[in-house]
């Protein structure tokens, strides 16, 4: 049941992506609206699927596949909020395909769970997981905003505006979006890492167990700290800040997917 719902959500996101991408090519408000409705429908189904899973299992995501599904969900949630905030639907043309990628990967990965040690089924794990999830979702949004910024900037600099020039929002809006997403994501990630460290201390007796994910997350955190500081204090904005946001997100993706395969440790995935 819950798996069927997950596939249905994936299908709805996929349809929404096609609509969103199509409306990048041709200006068609109905298509864009339809894509928005499909994405919300996908989100609703996805929410039900995750709720069923939570109710049945009563534990946080236990493998990479589950984590990615939660990640995709959080990204859509953050996206819907920004769509309302900025009254710009075009952002979906970049976010929703990314969501399809995340959820698609989730569906393709093995579903088996290495049994979770009992001490990990507590509120501490929940806090840690939810905070890092939301933080990373905000960074995903910042990355999409940055990508759109770079595309629009190139249109304006080239002086030969094409289709994207008309479809994409203003540089100002995109830069604001990136800034907002970073200033939300960073404190969430910070708290997420802190709660993780406390959790590690209570479970393993040490704040840091030096597994790949921890190390890489700290690297990412330092990177985002520098970027945010540069934006706030150094007046970094525009193209360079956008490129850094994209690099930062690559770090997030690596921390989520790759770091653990290099050095296995206390993170099950």
């Amino acid at each position: 049941m819950e798996l069927t719902l997950s596939y249905l959500a994936l299908l709805l996101y996929l349809a929404a992506s096609l609509g969103y991408l199509g409306s990048l090519r041709v200006s068609h408000p109905k298509l864009l609206r339809a894509a928005g409705i499909l994405a919300r429908a996908g989100f609703a189904v996805h929410t039900v699927a995750l709720a069923i899973r939570l109710y049945q299992e009563g534990r946080p995501p236990g493998n990479l596949s589950e984590w990615l599904s939660f990640y995709a969900w959080a990204t859509v949630a953050v996206h819907i909020l920004t769509e309302v905030r900025y009254e710009s639907k075009v952002i979906g043309s970049f976010v929703i395909p990314l969501v399809v990628l995340l959820l698609g990967t989730s569906a393709a990965l093995p579903k088996a769970i290495e049994s979770l040690s009992p001490p990990l089924k507590n509120i501490g794990v929940w806090t840690h997981v939810i905070l890092t999830l939301l933080g990373n979702a905000a960074f995903a949004l910042a990355c999409c905003g940055a990508l759109m910024y770079l595309l629009q900037e190139r249109q304006l600099k080239s002086k030969q505006p094409g289709v994207l020039y008309h479809r994409l929002p203003s540089l100002n809006l995109l830069d604001n979006l990136c800034h907002l997403a970073l200033s939300l994501g960073f404190p969430l990630l910070t708290l997420g890492l802190l709660s993780g460290a406390l959790l590690a201390y209570s479970t393993f007796g040490s704040f840091l167990t030096w597994d790949g994910k921890q190390i890489w997350s700290i690297v990412t955190w330092i990177f985002y700290a520098a970027l945010l500081h540069g934006r706030l204090a150094g007046g970094w904005r525009g193209r360079k800040a956008a490129i850094l946001s994209i690099i930062g997100f690559c770090g997030v993706v690596f921390a989520s997917l790759g770091a653990n395969f290099l050095i296995r440790g206390t993170h099950a995935f």
Partner: peptide, 9 residues
């Protein structure tokens, strides 16, 4: 139009 694409409003 260009000004709006840079500054928004």
């Amino acid at each position: 139009e260009l000004a709006k694409k840079i500054f928004g409003d």
